[in-house]
Design a protein around this nucleic acid. Structure first.
Lengths: 115, 115
DNA sequence: ATCGTTCATCGTAAATATACGATAGATAAG
DNA sequence: CTTATCTATCGTATATTTACGATGAACGAT
């Protein structure tokens, strides 16, 4: 079976993996950058900056929204997207735990671990 | 086509997305923690700590190796896996760029961006 | 009421990812 | 040499992801 056994893992690992999944496509990384670095928020503007069709960009925006990294503000027929600072910060802190694991534990290496 | 248009994005975004992809499964997050927090390095030991078959764990280890987050040291019939500190640190720094985007730019919000 | 703009969703096709059992390779131990 | 141990790989089944065009829904403007 290819049914991912997602629920049999640790809660924190599931959360981190889910955020990582949202970041696992270059289009979504670039969308995050666009939303913060440029004065742009509309789906149509983002489409012009990426080599993707409008429907595809919409899907990517949906995925970023799913994990809460961005939010959309309906403004008439338009939707203004922006980063959700609280959730971005939460994700940042959780990722730091992973990335700091090694440095915190000191220089364990393959060699020293051998049998 | 579902051929990911991976190469039409920015180099840095491609790199970040690739690392994120390697972290996008809870098993791989837990493997990283196991390799750093516990005195464990062998595939078989990891299998016992996860709800997955040996062949599946081997696949996950391969994916983490592919992006360089871990490395495997062949030791007879065994393989001793460990975190690659240099690459983990590089990934950490690249992710910080993304996660710090918002805070560096100040409190832009959907509201202020409207039209 | 109609038209244009903006975006989400549907349907669909192809690629990738996840998972397992079975098997093969490499080496240490006997 | 044979056996046991450890791991990678193969084959396979299913689920998910990526991508597009077409369509529909929501709203402002005319």
């Amino acid at each position: 079976m290819a049914t991912a056994k997602i629920n049999e893992f640790e809660k924190e690992a599931i959360y981190l993996a889910d955020i990582a999944k949202a970041l696992s496509h270059p289009a979504r990384i670039q969308i995050l950058k666009i939303l913060t670095e440029m004065d742009v928020c509309m789906c149509g503007d983002i489409v012009e900056l990426l080599p993707l069709a409008q429907s595809t960009v919409s899907q990517h925006l949906k995925e970023l929204q799913r994990v809460g990294l961005i939010k959309g503000d309906i403004d008439g027929p338009k939707v203004c997207y922006c980063v959700n600072p609280d959730n971005l910060n939460k994700a940042k802190k959780e990722f730091e735990i992973i990335f700091n694991l090694y440095t915190c534990k000191g220089a364990k290496s393959c060699r020293t671990k051998k049998k």
